[in-house]
Lab assay of single mutants.
Amino acid sequence: CHSECLGNCSQPDDPTKCVACRNFYLDGRCVETCPPPYYHFQDWRCVNFSFCQDLHHKCKNSRRQGCHQYVIHNNKCIPECPSGYTMNSSNLLCTPCLGPCPKVCHLLEGEKTIDSVTSAQELRGCTVINGSLIINIRGGNNLAAELEANLGLIEEISGYLKIRRSYALVSLSFFRKLRLIRGETLEIGNYSFYALDNQNLRQLWDWSKHNLTITQGKLFFHYNPKLCLSEIHKMEEVSGTKGRQERNDIALKTNGDQASCENELLKFSYIRTSFDKILLRWEPYWPPDFRDLLGFMLFYKEAPYQNVTEFDGQDACGSNSWTVVDIDPPLRSNDPKSQNHPGWLMRGLKPWTQYAIFVKTLVTFSDERRTYGAKSDIIYVQTDATNPSVPLDPISVSNSSSQIILKWKPPSDPNGNITHYLVFWERQAEDSELFELDYCLKGLKLPSRTWSPPFESEDSQKHNQSEYEDSAGECCSCPKTDSQILKELEESSFRKTFEDYLHNVVFVPRKT
């Protein structure tokens, strides 16, 4: 048989008469490798580009789960590009990614509803959504962080984005990388972005840091009482949809009607710091009717980097990364020049730590249904340095008659930039024990000054392991946590139920 035959053949030295091919099969003959313009397919066939392209389009058009959109890589027609490569849609070739590779997620039936953290986790790592997304989240724990972890990498949506009755959302900033909504599939009414009845939605994105392009379709905003109209108009300008909307697409009466839409800028007039305090004062603000001013709200939190936005980490279910302080308005003076500047002394802060701070007014709604208010920009203030805590785990070892090696770990709280350490030492008198000992005694162990690591005695271990207080009263049991108490109650309830079950099964009433 021919060298490319495997198993047997019907005619000697003829690659077209093989029972099976050793390498690849091409047009009725066995070959060692697939010549151009053919590609290896499933490690035994040679196919042309049209064959591989037909497989790709067949799966793409069917949208069946589990099928493969075949691509070409290293002269092979394979189910998908290997790690580190992405497909070129024009020629199906796998090309190296520039940075992290995109991950295209194809949605069944063309859309997916995100109504819980669990459903959001199914899209973790996706960068391109081939379909439409509907966000409908009523509640949950730590929602802002969970949504950002699972949806934060999405850069492109081919269909539309719909935010509907998501009472738990305060902001859409968890879509931190969303840059493009194509609108290839539109919501009824030709809408590519749809926001309806979101009672706590206050911000779409921080438009000073976020760009969003909507290729096709219109915007729809109705019944978002805490979303200011200025935020919607800003989205029109940034996304390129200005002029597409009709009169009733953006409701003037049901958007922002319960919001404090600040239209003035508060400026800080005085800032002073110490290692654990920050004193702030800002310019006074009074609405047209000074009785509408209820006070100020001061927001602050630790910020290692200057990239904080107002609604980071917030949701309507209680999660809030900001510390909020309510401040009463100052006494009002008739003389504008003698107006008191409101302020606040922030206490209990960490030394040498940068804080993000902003302040906003708290006002009631005027009778004319106009909203007044003022808010400052987010500023960054760093507390002063102070003395560091003591170095940890000092170790001293003498390696000769004239040297001592000293080692330690950095302090747990540096409280500033540590530039150097101060080492103090003092000579001590020799131990009298060394002169009084009889060095001729056998088995004498000389006193040693070398360091030995501390260890816990058996008594201390027994005390720590004991669940009861000892007789001397030195140790006591740790208080039980809520989960331990709940577990004990469940076990007790189970024992009672099981005992009742045994009584009912074992003891049967005697027939009379």
Rank of each mutant, 00 (worst) to 15 (best):
F220W: 07
E283G: 05
W352R: 01
I327N: 02
V104R: 02
Q199I: 10
N141R: 11
M346E: 13
Y194G: 07
E146T: 04
S230Y: 03
G140Y: 09
S119M: 08
S239G: 08
K226N: 04
E302H: 13
N190I: 03
L143P: 07
Y305L: 07
K218Q: 02
K407L: 06
L108N: 04
A303N: 04
S389I: 00
D249E: 13
A120Y: 09
A385E: 04
W282V: 03
P329Q: 14
R244H: 11
L201M: 02
S166C: 13
Y300F: 10
A149Q: 14
K253S: 13
G243W: 05
L227W: 00
G125M: 11
L172P: 03
Q199E: 14
N136F: 08
P394D: 05
G140S: 07
G240Y: 04
R369I: 13
I271Q: 15
S319L: 09
N320I: 05
T273S: 08
S274F: 13
T273E: 13
T213Y: 04
S398R: 01
N340M: 04
E283M: 09
I357R: 00
L133H: 00
V390N: 14
F296D: 10
A195G: 07
E231K: 12
Y191I: 11
K162Y: 15
N340W: 10
A168P: 13
I232L: 13
K253Y: 10
P394S: 11
P388L: 01
D115L: 09
V170M: 09
E262W: 04
E122P: 15
Y160W: 05
D257M: 05
A316Y: 15
E148C: 04
F268T: 04
C317W: 04
L280G: 02
L196R: 05
V363R: 04
L279T: 01
C261M: 02
M297F: 03
I137L: 08
M235K: 00
V381Q: 08
T215P: 15
D335I: 14
L172T: 09
R247H: 09
S396M: 03
R138K: 12
L392K: 13
S260N: 02
Y194E: 15
S260I: 13
G243Q: 13
N255W: 06
R332S: 14
L107I: 03
S116Q: 02
P351Q: 05
A316F: 13
R202F: 12
H233T: 11
S389T: 04
R244A: 09
L392Q: 04
K242A: 09
E146P: 07
I163M: 14
F193N: 00
L293Q: 05
I163A: 02
T353V: 10
G159P: 00
F299D: 02
N142M: 15
R138T: 01
V117F: 15
I327H: 14
H341C: 06
